[in-house]
Amino acid sequence: MIKKLKYHAAHDLKEALELAEQFGSRKRFLSGGTDVMVRLKEGLVREDVIVDLSHVAELRFVREESGVVHVGACATHADLSASPIVRQHGCALALAASRVGGTQIRNMGTVGGNVANASPAGDTIPAFIVLDAVVSIASRTGTRDVPIIDFFTGPGRSVLAAEELVKELHFPATGPDELTGFGKLGARQAMTISTANVAFYFRIGDNRRIVEARIAFGSVAPTVIRAYKTEQMFCQLPPLLSWDAIRGAAQMAWKEVAPIDDLRATAVYRKEAVVGLLAEAAYEALASCWHER
């Protein structure tokens, strides 16, 4: 049973911020509602005021400006996966968005909701992390930028204060020498919460060597995490496509994750599977990238 709530629709960012300040911790934002509505039904929403952001048109955009890609909080997963800008300059994010839920969820669910929700299983989060994204947080008194890696404080928790909202995320547009990708392990092909997910970023130097790597895993720790040691291993890879070498490098991930048992899988399995997930996604990406050159 859904409890009785007060509902306010914000029509622009200014109004949203005013409502945020007025109701503070009594309010819950609603964007696509794909998380909030489920929680409301389960009786898990403490707040008694809903502030609807879905009509705030100025928060729904994807654009590139002087080498930086900006994604508005109300951009949907469908927007991201279809955007030529994101596909070209933040491929991991386009791939991640295309694997969220099913068509209906991607049409409703937003990137702001995915990030603010702070689920360790949120699919766009590892992608934003390897893209070195920054979260722009707005309140009535101004905006502040927080690197996404510092945004999350625990499962379902972030640095967002009651009167703040996520305005946008932005990240440096990737260039032709940068390769990013995403992999997801779930119970089935669509409509599945990640048992584990992974995103990676590789900058390819001369002689096909990886000179810079960022790797992030989801659903294997209280928050999405970076795998720094594994990144180092990828930078040691020989400049030829070797399945064994890639798999060997990915093996390090085993040491960097701290999963738990839940209904979807055991911790032991998750630790094993993320290695494969990374190896497979990285191999595919490197193979197609080297094939093209």
Binding site: A187, R188, A190
Partner: peptide
Amino acid sequence: TYIIPTVQD
């Protein structure tokens, strides 16, 4: 959590 095949499966 009760997983049935989707059209993708």
